Simulated scan of single mutants.
Amino acid sequence: ADEEALRALLDTLPGGAPLRTVVHAGGVLDDATIGTASGERVRRVLRARAGAALALHRATAALDLDAFVLFSSLGGTLGTAGQATYAPGHAVLDALATA
């Protein structure tokens, strides 16, 4: 989710082998029910899920990619027991995938 570090990494890619595919599968293990999902826990999970995906999207938006793959879940739409910290991140990934 560190856009500056991500851009620095992308700048190291050789010109003869351009980036063609981005796969975002990042996450943080922090299961919680709604009653135990503190703001800090949700922020931590959102940074890894949504923050990293948005940083990847912004950093690669001008590139001619063949694929931009996001691993999400129906948890953002349907909800999943014990996964209250993940639902907002899944919803962001779903929205980004349709943008």
Rank of each mutant, 00 (worst) to 15 (best):
A1G: 15
D2Y: 12
E3F: 12
A5V: 12
A5H: 11
L10M: 13
L10Q: 13
T12L: 06
P14G: 09
A17W: 07
R20L: 04
T21K: 14
T21Y: 11
T21C: 13
V23N: 08
A25I: 13
G26N: 10
L29A: 15
T33R: 11
T33Q: 11
A37T: 05
A37N: 05
S38F: 00
S38N: 01
R41T: 07
R41K: 15
V42A: 03
V42N: 00
R43Y: 00
R47A: 14
R49W: 00
R49I: 02
R49C: 00
R49S: 04
A52M: 07
A52Q: 03
A53V: 05
H57Q: 08
H57G: 02
R58V: 03
T60Q: 01
A61Y: 02
A62E: 13
D64L: 04
V69W: 10
V69S: 02
F71S: 05
S72H: 00
S72P: 03
S73C: 03
L74P: 04
G75L: 04
T77A: 15
T77R: 13
T77M: 11
T77F: 07
G79I: 12
T80G: 10
T80S: 14
T80V: 08
A81T: 15
A81V: 15
A81H: 09
T85S: 13
T85L: 08
T85P: 04
Y86M: 02
Y86I: 00
A87F: 06
A87C: 09
A87G: 03
P88I: 02
P88G: 06
G89R: 02
H90F: 03
H90A: 06
V92L: 07
V92E: 01
L93P: 00
L93C: 08
L93G: 01
D94L: 15
L96R: 07
L96M: 14
A97D: 11
